[in-house]
Design a protein around this nucleic acid. Structure first.
Lengths: 334, 334
DNA sequence: CGGTATCAAGTTACCGATAACATTTCTTTT
DNA sequence: AAAAGAAATGTTATCGGTAACTTGATACCG
């Protein structure tokens, strides 16, 4: 209050102009020095950088963004309402977010998190790029955001009709791996349990069917809309009631698989002696399920990182195509 | 290219200046009109707003933030590395995020998501407020962010020593509810399984102990660092080996509880006839566990919303204190 | 009818950083 | 030693909003 110039700014520390004055140079030189531009004398640069550190200088992002006409921000739009028919479940989306965040932060970008509801906000439109998670079943949502004209990457299953970049794990491969496992075990009457109207689930089924077809085997499809233990039990009981024979079950989710196993055991049949069961997602609990559940595992974190790299590429004007990540079958006791 | 003025801006739509010209008024009038300021004639306002809509006008946030010296952003710092000793597990943090996001978006704020690693970024310091999630075990982290001098709210257990605002679910109540349940069931030798060095877990234990003490019961503490099924089994086996009698188990997590139940059954004792077991978190699977697991449930989404409301209050200079959310005991078969 | 209150809109001056162009200073070349 | 080139720094203008202060017009008052 008393001395003029002691504290020029109410909130926030010194600006480039302040540093410039301190260093006896002009603003632009400070800007260059802090940006490691080769245009400034190394000594000057050093001096200014030290000064900046000492005085706790903080770059004003809004100012820079305004000037550069970009936000250095990628909006991530997540479906966060938990629901029974969610494919993205449990800790996984968080791992995806972790991968995304890690990669974007490393590249100097920020992650703006929104739900579909809040995605109309100005901040989202101001983003340099867009990542869509968990919108698999909402093609309309994808199209809606596509209209924003921002570089966009979607997590899910690639579809021929859509033009945007899709990153996902290789669901076809997942299905195929399970099929091969069943074949190796000599299974002849496999069942697929799940809801193939989700593009990702459909891919799993598709890969499964194709790989089995090579051996002339045609699996049975038990459509289940809910991805829960109960639903899995239900599926098996329903098979039993209809007196349909089966010796292998591929559930498109671990909970379904657990339910299927439980029901199978209830019916007096043995797992895995009589019936093989494989789930999907390899959730933490699966390994300690009784019996330990075999499952297909996807690398969510890596997926997140890949998503991030793709948007960054698009933002930089580089070409980027859809890509699938490998999955692995974890064989345990079922 | 050909006609001058047709497309003034390479990227991005019209600015306020453009609208001003179109409407034959000055920039500031446009600004006022769009901000619903009473300083403009209602008709003019209407006219300008319509014009803005027609031309797809988008407010430039960076410009506004620069001028207003605030970012309208709250940074959420999450611990995303999954690890065995994590209290915040599974879908829950996502629900927390959902609550936060919903509330902040509604208030016109953006959610900036970062990990602890990326939290040094300029964008974080530029935030108007801070929410810390999953840092319970890292008091140093809390202090580190406290230094930024931003309005800050932490998820976890309130501690007397700390001055910042803490929001969490009422872990003491959770412990007490379980204790009362055990008392009602006539249990006399309860065991607590978990790692009380986490503040939140400690509160659960504390509430548990205090409520039991009213009946002169003193529980046994089985310290377990890992929150897994195996660890839960281990705990019970270890009790058995040491020939310690017990008739009730309060596990501070559902996975531990499941392990404890399994081990108890393995030892030939019945749940719940011989031993009562209660878990914590009420994960989706718990209801369909065999036997269906009793568990303490917290409302994560509401927690997120409360966190958000607290930071907003702090940002607006209103006072805000720590607060705990009620929890409920879901009694099932154990 | 002069003078003040009220309403509507305009002027000017920033917020803090940076690109494009300009200038100065030193080094090198023939 | 004059011209040309390279290196280091400065000037000016601008990104798109908005607050503070001013101006102009109309209404109201005794």
């Amino acid at each position: 209050m008393s001395k003029k110039g002691t504290r020029k700014h109410a909130s926030g520390g010194p600006t480039m102009a302040d540093l410039a004055q301190l260093a006896g140079v002009s603003k632009i030189t400070v800007s260059r020095a802090l940006g490691d531009s080769p245009l400034v004398n190394p000594q000057t640069r050093e001096r200014i950088q030290t000064l900046a550190r000492e005085h706790g200088y903080k770059l004003n992002i809004s100012a820079r963004n305004l000037r550069l006409r970009r936000s250095h921000t990628v909006a991530v739009i997540v479906e966060m309402r938990p629901s029974v028919d969610r494919t993205m479940f449990d800790p996984y989306p968080l791992l995806l977010l972790g991968g995304i965040s890690q990669e974007l932060t490393a590249a100097g970008y920020s992650v703006l998190l929104t739900t579909r509801q809040g995605a109309g906000a100005a901040a989202v439109r101001a983003a340099d790029g867009l990542i869509l998670l968990g919108q698999g079943a909402h093609q309309d949502a994808v199209r809606r955001f596509d209209k924003l004209g921002l570089p966009m990457v979607v997590w899910g299953a690639p579809s021929i009709s859509d033009a945007h970049v899709v990153v996902g794990s290789d669901n076809r491969l997942g299905g195929a791996l399970v099929a091969r496992q069943f074949i190796a075990l000599g299974r002849r009457r496999p069942v697929f349990v799940g809801n193939p109207s989700h593009p990702e689930i459909f891919e799993r089924l598709d890969g499964f069917v194709d790989a089995l077809a090579l051996r002339g085997i045609k699996p049975l499809l038990m459509r289940r809309d809910e991805f829960t233990v109960d639903s899995g039990m239900d599926a098996v009981h329903s098979l039993h009631e209809r007196k349909v024979g089966f010796d292998a079950i591929f559930a498109c989710n671990d909970l379904l698989a657990m339910g299927a196993i439980r029901a199978t055991l209830d019916l007096g049949r043995s797992v895995p002696a009589d019936v093989s069961v494989v789930g999907y997602d390899d959730m933490p609990l699966s390994a300690s399920f009784l019996p330990p559940l075999s499952s297909v595992r996807q690398d969510w974190q890596e997926g997140g990182m890949l998503l991030a790299r793709k948007v960054l590429a698009l933002i930089d004007g580089e070409p980027a195509g859809s890509e699938s990540l490998p999955v692995s079958l974890i064989v345990r006791a079922t």
